[in-house]
Design a protein around this nucleic acid. Structure first.
Lengths: 266, 266
DNA sequence: CAGTGGTCTAGACCACAGT
DNA sequence: CTGTGGTCTAGACCACTGA
């Protein structure tokens, strides 16, 4: 029962390779406050990302992996499960756990346009066009779960990259949630300010559609009237279920598209 | 140390109610092949959906719940965790597990337009416009991971509701994957046929954008030339990482929008 | 048949929240 | 302080896969 690769083996099965010896490098630090399963998950994810674990390769069975790392099987399973949830690994009973064959791109998340653009190296610029208190319309009141006519903050921002407008963002925010400093809003994104103010974002309901630009919108975004715009309406909730933000945004379809990866619910 | 509610207690905390006695109804069937944690998760989900567990109500601690159901704590945790992942429950250390306050709408999933429309009671109709073998263009070959010029099935369908066109769907599919019977395609959706053919859908990479309709597209969809269209480009992968479908679709923005819920990655 | 993941148990100690 | 969820262990039996 040798665990070593057979030097006489010259080829690989077409879609399944042998358990990878790259796993031998793994080790956990029991003195760290980071949970053991999380340490393992991060090392696995790193190995996959850097190609040390090739797509299609088998991880080796859970019992042996646990033994080698000095962990229990449930702990190892917890690490593996978190990567299965992310779509990086696939488990098959009777076969084993293997790295998915296709490249995983971006996971789907509650995206901040600011962060998206920054991650793409586009150094976004924000101009705050309005930042004031208004009476909530029926639509806004329904979305935020407040009384119609009660005070909400209206925030309108023009987001540009490379000196060209890209999107016009309109947000409605409960006034007691946080202080919206215009200077800070022009330096970073709304979600970052919310997180810094102790708001824990939890979920969002989104609708993505399209329509033609009105003359005013065309002027704002440097598009011809009638040009196609991408529209997004979003209500964001915190971990206690409070609506913390309602937004109606328009994007220049010539310069922006939503890109994301979905996992099938099992 | 009484576990009974105090009858003198008349009021509730503003956002947190007491553990619900509705949980006393729960029971698991050990003779069923359905996993115990899954049985419990379904009963919890049902109780939340039907309002027997009110938003904000506490579930009661895991140890006690496990004891009452005759389950171990890890099993109960697995059930609760699956609902936390779905966004129905929130756990807070030192406090307990409670039902989220806001209504959860649709979870995000790999949606089939056909299923979406049927769920909305719109009884969709499909007309297959093309169903033939073609040589893969560079774009299609790259998306499907096949050689440029190799054979792929090109499928073009017009999807209508209430006798009005709604979307024009163009798909490219590896020819050896399944038989695409035109009659079946007009009676159901592509994903359902794939699942019936033993294909396990796993993930998809999507891009959603917008543009103006060309004169030809306007004619197809009964829109004026220049009208705003919603566009979606999607590559779908199976559980082994094979690309099983590449599609470029256009939707009438006047009649359709993508709606979904996102959960924040923690 | 042997090997894999899927499920389940009965404990344990810890960190954090609210009193 | 008490009570909660967060983490972890060391086993067990079962169902499915593939040879």
């Amino acid at each position: 029962m040798s665990d070593f690769p057979d030097p006489r083996t010259g080829g690989y099965s077409p879609r399944v390779s042998k358990p990878e010896s790259a796993l031998l490098d793994f080790a956990v630090d029991r003195s760290s406050p980071v949970p053991l399963y999380y340490q393992l998950a991060q090392q696995l994810e790193g190995a996959i990302e850097h190609g040390r674990l090739a797509p299609g390769s088998l991880l080796g069975n859970e019992i042996e992996l646990a033994g080698r790392l000095g962990l229990s099987r449930p702990t190892v399973r917890q690490a593996i499960q978190s990567l299965v949830d992310k779509g990086l690994l696939v488990r098959r009973r009777g076969v084993g756990t293997q790295v998915v064959h296709s490249q995983v791109k971006r996971p789907l998340e509650l995206s901040s346009l600011y962060d998206d653009l920054q991650a793409a190296g586009q150094s976004p610029a924000t101009q705050v066009r309005r930042n004031e208190i208004q009476a909530a319309s029926a639509e806004v009141a329904a979305a935020l779960g407040v009384a119609e006519g009660s005070e909400v903050v209206l925030l309108e921002r023009l987001r540009s990259t490379y000196g060209e407008p890209m999107a016009y963002l309109s947000n409605y925010i409960p006034p007691d949630l946080l202080n919206l400093d215009t200077a800070k809003l022009e330096a970073t994104g709304l979600y970052r300010l919310m997180r810094a103010a102790g708001v824990t974002l939890h979920s969002a309901q989104q609708t993505v559609g399209a329509r033609s630009a009105t003359p005013d919108e065309g002027k704002l975004l440097a598009e011809d009237p009638g040009a196609a715009l991408l529209t997004m309406r979003r209500t964001t909730y915190d971990d206690k279920g409070r609506a913390v933000e309602y937004g109606t945004h328009i994007y220049r379809a010539s310069r922006y598209a939503f890109e994301f990866q979905l996992l099938v619910r099992s």
